[in-house]
Amino acid sequence: MAGQVRAMIDQIVEQRSKGNSVLATTTLTKLILKGLDPARFDANSPDDPIVIARIREVAAELNVTL
């Protein structure tokens, strides 16, 4: 399976920014500073369980429900 990582990152950005493009950029910056660079993942990225676990941690920190 592939693409789950990117989908989860997009969900985090969507929920935190609510469509506001400035907040979307800020949220992407926060993810990068947390060590999750969205640019490294796309629809073909493998569903790496270690990365998925880290995204769940970050989502919880940001109070986002996935």
């Binding site: 935190r16 907040l23 800020t26 926060k30 500073l33 947390k34 920190e61 940001l62 109070n63």
Partner: peptide, 11 residues
């Protein structure tokens, strides 16, 4: 800064 950023969108 990480904790602040988690809790708010205010800069």
């Amino acid at each position: 800064m990480d904790r602040i950023g988690d809790l708010t969108n205010v800069n």
